[in-house]
Computed example of a mutant assay.
Amino acid sequence: MNDRPDRISLATRIRNNFLTGLIICAPLAITIWLTWSFIHWADSWVKPYIPSRYNPESYLKFAIPGFGLLLALVAITLIGFLGKNLIGRSIVGYSESILNRMPLVRTVYKSTKQIFETVLKEQSSSFKRVGLIEFPHPGTWALVFVSTDARGEIAAKLSENGEEMVAVFLAPTPVPTAGFLMFVPRSKLRLLDMSPEEGIKLLISAGLVTPEYTAAATSDAANAVTPPAET
């Protein structure tokens, strides 16, 4: 009878040690696996286009992981450098004029280019803020990522009452690879102080990983939601 608590205590310690080791090893193993898989994926796309005489693996007896990825990064950087001068802009403009003559290709190219320009633009605020909206009904709040202000026809149709509309992305849990593009009034959007990275962690973990928050909340978020009245 006296040995039972000791056995339970020992089993509990073993379980706790196992869970602690799992918490340490699992993220590390997943990170290494994802990184290694990405490197091999990039190499599989780039290496077939490298001439044999310029590929060091043709002279060595072992593969060089990451060589294709490194070469792709150098090539993309070089193309970006050349695209800023007059000759490079002329070549890009001529190539775009050819693509614009292709009915299906021009639609895909223009849409893709617009997305990359919006996301990668240095001064863009796209997906740099996290907020809350009432969804799917009042009193229930959903986490969203702020995309940009509504523009064009959508802004004209939805802003008839004078209130600005904001485009937000509502991603599902736990895999935020798809979701809904929604346009909500700026006054209905509650901006949060957390970063997009913290918002993604909160979303993927289904609310289990909550970012730290201090009681001294900044007033910048409130000012961004409701602009001050003009005098």
Rank of each mutant, 00 (worst) to 15 (best):
L71F: 07
L73S: 14
K47D: 12
M102E: 10
N100T: 01
I64S: 04
A72H: 07
L60Y: 07
R15Q: 03
K61G: 15
C25R: 13
I32H: 09
S37L: 05
I39K: 01
W33R: 14
R89A: 06
T20E: 01
I98S: 02
R106T: 09
P56R: 08
I91R: 05
L60G: 04
S58Y: 10
A26M: 15
P51R: 07
I76Y: 00
P27M: 01
L86Q: 07
L22A: 12
G21Q: 02
T107H: 06
Y54G: 09
L99G: 06
L22Q: 09
N16W: 02
L104P: 03
N16Y: 02
R101D: 03
L34M: 15
G21V: 06
S58C: 06
G68A: 01
Y94N: 05
N16S: 08
K110P: 00
K84P: 03
L19I: 11
N100C: 00
I64Y: 04
V92T: 12
F62P: 02
W33G: 15
N55V: 06
L78R: 04
R15P: 00
F38P: 00
V108W: 09
L86H: 03
L99S: 12
A72L: 14
L28H: 13
R53P: 03
M102Q: 13
G21C: 05
S97W: 15
G83A: 13
G21Y: 04
V46K: 03
N55G: 06
L104E: 10
S37W: 06
C25G: 14
R101K: 15
R101A: 04
R53M: 12
N85D: 14
S111W: 06
F67I: 13
N17H: 02
I39G: 00
